[in-house]
Measured scan of single mutants.
Amino acid sequence: GATAVSEWTEYKTADGKTYYYNNRTLESTWEKPQELK
Rank of each mutant, 00 (worst) to 15 (best):
G1M: 12
A2E: 13
A2T: 14
T3N: 10
T3S: 11
T3D: 14
A4T: 15
A4F: 08
A4G: 13
A4K: 13
V5M: 11
V5Y: 14
V5S: 13
V5I: 13
V5E: 11
V5A: 12
V5Q: 14
S6H: 10
S6L: 07
S6T: 11
S6N: 12
S6W: 08
E7I: 05
E7F: 08
E7K: 03
E7V: 06
E7S: 05
W8D: 01
W8T: 00
W8L: 01
T9Y: 09
T9R: 11
T9K: 10
E10P: 04
E10H: 03
E10I: 07
K12L: 10
K12T: 13
K12N: 05
K12Y: 09
K12F: 09
T13P: 01
T13Q: 04
A14I: 11
A14K: 09
A14W: 06
A14M: 08
A14F: 04
D15Q: 07
D15E: 08
D15K: 05
D15N: 08
D15L: 04
G16M: 02
G16L: 01
G16W: 01
G16V: 00
K17N: 07
K17F: 06
K17I: 07
K17P: 01
T18L: 09
T18D: 04
T18N: 05
T18E: 05
Y20Q: 00
Y20G: 00
Y20V: 00
Y20T: 00
Y21N: 02
Y21P: 02
N22I: 00
N22T: 00
N23A: 11
N23I: 12
N23E: 11
R24N: 10
R24G: 06
R24Y: 12
R24K: 13
T25Y: 02
L26F: 14
L26T: 09
L26S: 11
L26H: 15
L26K: 15
E27K: 05
E27H: 03
S28M: 15
S28N: 05
S28T: 15
S28K: 14
S28Q: 11
T29Q: 12
T29M: 07
T29N: 04
T29F: 06
T29Y: 06
E31A: 05
E31P: 02
E31G: 04
E31K: 04
E31I: 10
E31Y: 06
E31H: 06
K32M: 10
K32P: 09
P33F: 02
P33T: 02
Q34E: 15
Q34P: 15
Q34H: 10
E35N: 08
E35H: 07
E35S: 09
E35W: 04
E35F: 06
E35R: 04
E35A: 08
L36R: 05
L36Q: 07
L36K: 06
L36Y: 10
K37D: 14
K37V: 15
